[in-house]
Amino acid sequence: MRHRTRLSMLALGLTASLAASAAGVRSPSMLANTCAGCHGTNGASAGEQMPSIGGMDNGYLFSVLSDYKTGVRRSTIMGRIMKGYSDQEIWAIAAFFAEQPWVSTDRVALAGPIHVGRDIHERQCESCHEDGGREQNDDSPHMAGQWSGYLRYALEECRAIGRRCSPRKMGLRVMDLSDEEIEALARFYESEK
């Protein structure tokens, strides 16, 4: 799925929207309502272990959701949910959330871990997650203002699978981080509103 071009994903999404409208099938907002129980209304999560997804790049979301569907990305429930959707429906869900506003966590930051996390970010992460994790694209999600609990989980998962993490360079960069460094990095991103 990662090899699809942005243009073919756009065409897929347009085709899905037109087909849904013509056939009276579920709308993108209807499809996305399935996600609200965990990811919050319009993708603004209210819980530390669940990522906010509203306002994320649609190409990134499509890739992640497709990876859940095919089993490339491990999950407890996301894989089962995504298997129930066609590629067109997954694109419609991704596009719906991409159009929503990003909502940062309102958690107050702790100064100590933030400084350590900022140093790690500048050394190892800034080349892909520019502007403190605010910049995003098909390969890197919006991380500034994301819940630290979810970020910690995601970083630990990536560290556990190392070179098999996607993208591979991500796995290589987190393989040697300690639990304390992962916590500091997660707290840093959470503090970047």
Rank of each mutant, 00 (worst) to 15 (best):
D138F: 09
S17D: 13
R4L: 15
G47H: 07
A160D: 12
R163E: 12
I93H: 04
G112P: 12
S148W: 02
D176Q: 06
A19H: 12
S45M: 04
G13P: 04
D131I: 07
R123K: 15
L65C: 08
G71Q: 08
L31P: 09
I90G: 08
M1Q: 12
S127R: 12
C125V: 07
G149H: 03
A144H: 05
G145L: 06
G43P: 08
G145W: 06
Y68F: 15
E157F: 00
D138A: 15
E89M: 06
E181V: 03
R187Q: 11
I53W: 08
D106N: 09
R107D: 05
G132S: 11
R168C: 00
G37A: 12
L18E: 11
A46L: 14
E99I: 01
S75H: 05
D119W: 07
V64G: 00
G79M: 10
Q146R: 01
I182H: 01
T41R: 05
V25Y: 11
C35M: 05
L172M: 10
D57C: 03
M170Y: 07
S104C: 06
P141Q: 08
W147H: 15
P28Y: 12
A154Y: 01
R159N: 02
I90M: 13
T70Y: 07
V25R: 13
L155Q: 00
S127A: 14
V116W: 02
S66A: 14
G84C: 08
S140H: 14
R152N: 07
S29I: 07
A109P: 01
I161R: 05
H129F: 11
L14F: 10
I90A: 09
S8L: 09
L155Y: 02
Y153G: 00
A94Q: 11
S127V: 13
S104W: 03
I53F: 06
K193Y: 05
H142L: 10
H121I: 02
M170Q: 04
G133V: 09
K83S: 14
T105P: 01
A111H: 08
M143Q: 00
S63I: 05
L10A: 13
S75G: 05
E156G: 06
D57V: 05
A19E: 09
E156D: 10
D87A: 14
L110E: 14
L14T: 13
M143L: 15
V116R: 14
I81V: 15
D57T: 06
E181C: 01
A109Q: 06
L185T: 13
H142Q: 04
A44T: 11
L12C: 11
S66R: 03
R73L: 09
S63H: 06
G112S: 13
T15M: 08
T41M: 09
V64S: 01
I182V: 14
K193A: 11
